[in-house]
Amino acid sequence: MIDQVKIPVIVNGAAGKMGREVVKAIAQAPDMTLMGAIDTSLEHQGKDAGELLDLGKPLGIPITNQLEPMLTFINQKIQRGVMVDFTHPSSVYNSVRNAIAYGIHPVVGTTGLSSEQIQNLADFADKASVGCLIIPNFLIGIILLQQAAMAASQYFDHVEIIELHHNQKADAPSGTAIQTAQMLATMGKNFNKQPVEETEKLLGARGSLTDNGIRIHSIRLPGLIAHQEVIFGSPGQIYTLRHDTSDRSCYMPGVLLAIRKVSQLKSLVYGLDKIL
């Protein structure tokens, strides 16, 4: 029997590094119930989500690659279901659009969506009156870093962003780095006016370039999780803001907050700071 009090949640990408943490957090949350664990990896099909995570007991939820039938089931039985997506940039758009079409509220941690795709999803969510959260980063620390960067940008005209992630991350730059650059762009100024004409001896040596002159550099190495630096410079001084993660469990308070908030929305909202 479905508990009508607890929030029913589907995790898409359940066998991935972030997906496993999400499944564990939902299993331990008193106000949530795991309804589905979706993953396309063949090696995990049919395995119990609890046994895969070594929780000490089965959850009675098998790993399956059948997302749409699960969305259909939730749509027919429950009106306030949530889908958390930590999958891949190549599949996230269709998964989120399908969830909205079935009246399931998406919480999206997968990055790599283009601006056009986000706008299309926003238009679709508006028409369906279904809340959707797209969150490049679920960490309070990153929000504080971005706020500090906004404050610093009033006094510095030169800034570059370095983001560092594990080498299994498929998209670059990271969604967090792009969001940070977008926030700095709202200051209405162009950064990094160069006194000389630069020449790259190797293509990409200076990183990617935003419309307002901010350079973003992406590093991918095993041993990293997720890290970001925003470096400001002016004659005689450097001001560096940095955030590091050492365990993926640090994302879970933000993920659980988003799950609790998304069903209260009627449109797409971008960024964790909008729901704090």
Rank of each mutant, 00 (worst) to 15 (best):
I78A: 10
M252D: 05
R260P: 09
Q119F: 04
S263Y: 03
P58L: 05
A27H: 01
A148H: 11
S174P: 08
T210Q: 09
I26Y: 00
S249I: 01
Q4L: 11
V9F: 00
Q237G: 00
F138D: 08
N94I: 08
G175H: 06
A27I: 06
Q146G: 07
H166V: 10
H166R: 11
S114T: 15
E51N: 06
Q147G: 08
I259K: 03
G36K: 09
D39W: 01
I63P: 03
F191D: 00
S90C: 09
I178P: 05
A122D: 11
K127G: 12
I275D: 12
M187V: 05
R20K: 14
Q79H: 11
L203T: 14
V108R: 04
K77G: 01
K77F: 04
R206E: 14
C250W: 02
S91M: 10
G103P: 12
L272H: 03
F124N: 08
R242H: 15
R260V: 01
A27R: 01
L257C: 13
I259S: 02
H217I: 04
V255W: 02
K6D: 10
P253W: 01
I38A: 06
G236W: 02
A122W: 00
I275A: 14
T87W: 06
E21Q: 08
K201F: 06
I38T: 04
P8N: 15
I10C: 07
I178L: 15
A258S: 13
V5R: 11
M183Q: 14
N190A: 08
G50S: 12
S41W: 00
I225H: 10
V230R: 10
L133M: 08
S91V: 15
S129E: 14
I178H: 06
V108E: 05
I78V: 15
D48Y: 00
I26A: 07
P8H: 11
F73W: 10
T64A: 07
G60I: 12
L203I: 07
G60W: 03
I238W: 08
T186N: 09
P235L: 10
N190F: 13
C250R: 06
A14L: 06
I178Q: 12
I161Q: 09
L113F: 14
A181E: 10
L55N: 03
G223N: 13
G213M: 13
S90L: 15
G109A: 09
E68R: 12
N190W: 15
E229S: 12
L256R: 04
A177F: 15
K201R: 04
S263M: 10
A258L: 07
S129Y: 05
T210L: 08
T199M: 11
P58A: 07
Y270C: 02
S234G: 07
V11R: 07
K17P: 09
C132Q: 09
H227M: 11
A122K: 09
Y251E: 13
V255R: 01
Q194V: 05
I161E: 08
A125P: 02
L52W: 00
T176P: 00
T64H: 02
H44R: 10
H88V: 07
H243S: 15
K193V: 12
L276N: 14
Q45K: 04
